[in-house]
C-alpha cells in the first residue's frame, strides 16, 4: 500500500487516513482541566494532543520589561520526549520552538485586551503530549481555549487550522487542490500553511491573525496554490471555532448546573 497521498489521490479523492479534502480530524477539547491554575485546556486534533495552562494576569517577575500600558504575554512550548514516534530528547534552544513561542505570544498580545491589565504578565504554558502534524495550530487553539477559561477579555475566539495543497498527478496542467488539516505524513510530503482567524465585526468577514508557512509553493500563475489554501484555511478556522464554542458552552452549562 503506498504511503503517500499524491499517487492515489486522483483516483480515490481520499487521503491516506480516508478523509476527504475538507474533512477535519476528530477534535476533542475540554477546558478547566486543572482547577488550580487560572485557565487550562486539553485539546486533541486527531493524534495531536496539547495541554495548556494559563497563569495570570499577575505581577511579572522581571523588573525591567514591564510595559506600563499593557499586559505582556509570554509563552512556553514544551514538546514531550514521547510525543513522536521516535523518542526525541528535547533540545533546549531549539530555534523552531522559540519561533513558535514567539508566534503564539505575538498573536495573543495583539488579540487580547491587554490594556486592561497594565504592567502585568500573562503566562501561557503549552505541553505537546503527542504530535501528528498541526503543531502551531494545536498550540494556538489550546491556548485560545485556556485564555477563555481564565476569563481574560478578548474580542472573539481565535481559531487555527492548517491547510495544504495536493497536485493530483505529475501533469503540471491540472489544478492543484487544497486540503484541510494535515497530519504528520502529509506535512512532510505536501506544502502547507498554518492560519488563524478571529471574528471580524458583526456582519463582516473574519480577519486573519496568524499566517505561517514553512514550505514553498507557487503564488501566482495558473496553478497558484496559495489563494486556494488560504480560502480553505479561513473556512476551516470557522469550523474549528464552532467546535471550540461548543465546548465552552457545554462547560458553562455544566458549571451553572452545579450551582443551581
Amino acid at each position: 500500500m503506498p504511503l503517500d497521498t499524491i499517487s492515489t489521490y486522483a483516483q480515490t479523492l481520499l487521503r491516506q487516513d480516508g478523509r476527504r479534502w475538507n474533512e477535519l480530524r476528530r477534535i476533542t477539547a475540554s477546558i478547566s482541566t486543572q482547577p488550580s491554575s487560572d485557565g487550562s485546556s486539553l485539546l486533541t486534533m486527531g493524534n495531536t494532543m496539547v495541554l495548556c495552562t494559563v497563569t495570570g494576569p499577575r505581577e511579572g517577575n522581571r523588573r525591567g520589561q514591564r510595559d506600563n500600558t499593557n499586559a505582556t504575554v509570554e509563552t512556553e512550548i514544551n514538546v514531550a520526549s514521547f510525543a513522536q514516534m521516535d523518542r526525541r530528547r528535547r533540545v533546549r534552544n531549539d530555534k523552531r520552538i522559540q519561533e513558535l513561542q514567539s508566534t503564539v505570544s505575538s498573536a495573543f498580545q495583539s488579540h487580547l485586551f491587554t490594556h486592561l491589565y497594565p504592567r502585568s504578565t500573562i503566562s501561557i504554558s503549552l505541553h505537546v503530549l503527542s504530535l501528528d502534524g498541526a503543531l502551531l495550530v494545536a498550540c494556538l487553539n489550546a491556548a485560545s481555549l485556556a485564555l477563555v477559561d481564565a476569563g481574560i477579555p478578548m474580542p472573539s475566539i481565535l481559531a487555527a487550522i492548517s491547510s495544504g495543497s495536493v497536485t493530483p498527478t505529475d501533469d503540471s496542467s491540472t489544478r492543484p487542490e487544497p486540503i484541510l488539516d494535515l497530519n504528520n505524513v502529509e506535512e512532510q510530503e505536501l506544502p502547507f500553511l498554518s492560519i488563524a482567524t478571529v471574528s471580524g465585526h458583526p456582519g463582516s468577514e473574519d480577519k486573519v491573525s496568524v499566517l505561517t508557512m514553512e514550505s514553498r509553493c507557487q503564488i501566482g500563475g495558473a496553478n497558484s496554490k496559495l489563494e486556494s489554501m488560504m480560502a480553505t484555511g479561513v473556512d476551516g478556522c470557522k469550523q474549528v471555532r464552532r467546535k471550540m464554542e461548543d465546548v465552552i458552552r457545554k462547560h458553562g452549562a455544566k458549571v451553572l448546573q452545579g450551582r443551581k
Binding site: M154, H201, G252
Partner: peptide, 17 residues
C-alpha cells in the same frame, strides 16, 4: 463587553453569564 467604533452592537469579551 465592548463596542466597536463603527456600530452600536454590543459584543461580549468574556465567557460567562
Amino acid at each position: 463587553t465592548y463596542m466597536t467604533d463603527s456600530s452600536t452592537t454590543i459584543i461580549a469579551t468574556l465567557a460567562g453569564i
